[in-house]
């Protein structure tokens, strides 16, 4: 199967059981997307699939022939700088998923005003066990307001 990841074409021969997350981490050396729960509950594995945020742990790679994936390694977006400025992490494990999710979320919101409660609701699929939520919200709020 063929998959475009961060703009680069990849030809892969995978066991059909391989998830997109495992394909990225184990077959392409892209370890930015993290395996947290592996059941779609934590959001650490979030990547952008054809521009939309998804849980890569619940997608079988074999279903994605011809698709285009963006991971944290291929992302260049103001949200990344804002996470640094606002200290939007502690251990950092959830951060790649938080950032990919925030980028996808801002595209979904399409310029709509995002009060903090709305940011929290829209980002509820990304858990942070360190509890860095206030700073994550602050980082996203700043980019959303631009």
């Amino acid at each position: 199967m063929d998959l475009r990841v961060n703009g680069e074409p990849h030809s892969l021969d995978l066991d059909p059981r391989t998830t997109l997350l495992d394909a990225l981490r184990e077959h392409m050396g892209l370890t930015g997307a993290k395996k947290g729960c592996d059941h779609g509950q934590c959001g650490a594995c979030t990547v952008l699939l054809d521009g939309r945020r998804v849980n890569s742990c619940l997608i079988l790679a074999v279903t994605l022939d011809g698709a285009s994936v963006t991971t944290i390694e291929g992302l260049s977006h103001p949200v990344q700088e804002a996470f640094l400025e606002h200290d939007g992490f502690q251990c950092g494990y959830c951060t790649p998923g938080q950032i990919c999710s925030a980028v996808g979320m801002l595209a979904e919101a399409d310029g709509a005003s995002l009060p903090d409660a709305e940011i929290r609701e829209r980002m509820s699929g990304n858990l942070c066990r360190c509890g860095a939520y206030p700073n994550i919200v602050a980082a996203i709020r700043e980019v959303a307001a631009r």
Binding site: G43, R53, G104, M105, R122, S124, G125, N126
Partner: peptide
Amino acid sequence: GASGQLRNM
């Protein structure tokens, strides 16, 4: 229902 990521799938 669910999360933004799951609703996209």
